[in-house]
């Protein structure tokens, strides 16, 4: 096996890690459920990056997001990840107002609905609304046609609208 490119220098990976780790964990958590599994995913991505001498880092953010999506997909496929409940940080402020409680409950409901979406739809939703990627970028990242992204997104939003409207549990 011949190496195609030189191995990435460690400082580069260190910089990428420092700059993107938290965000990537948050992204992964939206895809695999649970902070513990998300951290495992991102740790694996960086461990792989350190070993992968052929990684194309001309667009590092793109590479990392794609790696996290792929790794998350793999984790979900195996369904062998030990999932844990994310414990929100303790709040020290006063009791939230009713409106805030309602808002949090709705957000929980939305996230639960997103978790129940088919995998492709879930990925598209997370990449569109969490990563703020354009349709064409999502298509490139997932290796599918833009029309397929749009269709998945449309179906996902329709499903989520049904949940929010109360017409779908």
């Amino acid at each position: 096996m011949e190496l195609i490119t030189d191995r990435r220098s460690e400082p580069d990976v260190q910089v990428l890690f420092a700059e993107h780790y938290l965000h990537l964990v948050r992204l992964a958590a939206s895809l695999v459920d649970g902070q513990e599994a998300a951290e495992d995913v991102v740790q694996d991505v960086f461990a792989a990056l350190q070993r992968n001498r052929r990684a194309d880092l001309t667009r590092p953010e793109h590479y990392l997001v794609r790696a996290v999506v792929n790794r998350s997909r793999s984790v979900l496929r195996r369904r062998r990840v030990v999932r844990s409940v994310v414990v929100p940080p303790q709040r020290t402020d006063a009791e939230p107002a009713d409106a805030e409680i309602v808002k949090r409950a709705e957000n929980d409901r939305i996230r639960t609905a997103i978790r129940r979406l088919p995998q492709r739809q879930r990925e598209v939703v997370v990449l569109r609304y969490f990563e703020d990627l354009e349709i064409a970028e999502i298509a490139q990242l997932l290796g599918i046609k833009p029309t397929a992204v749009s269709a998945s997104l449309h179906r996902a939003v329709s499903s989520l609208r049904g949940v929010l409207d109360g017409s779908v549990e």
């Binding site: 958590a29 949090r104 957000n107 929980d108 996230r111 939703v125 609304y129 969490f130």
Partner: peptide
């Protein structure tokens, strides 16, 4: 909702 979850 996604952002609120992430910020946890």
């Amino acid at each position: 909702a996604l952002r609120e979850g992430a910020e946890e």
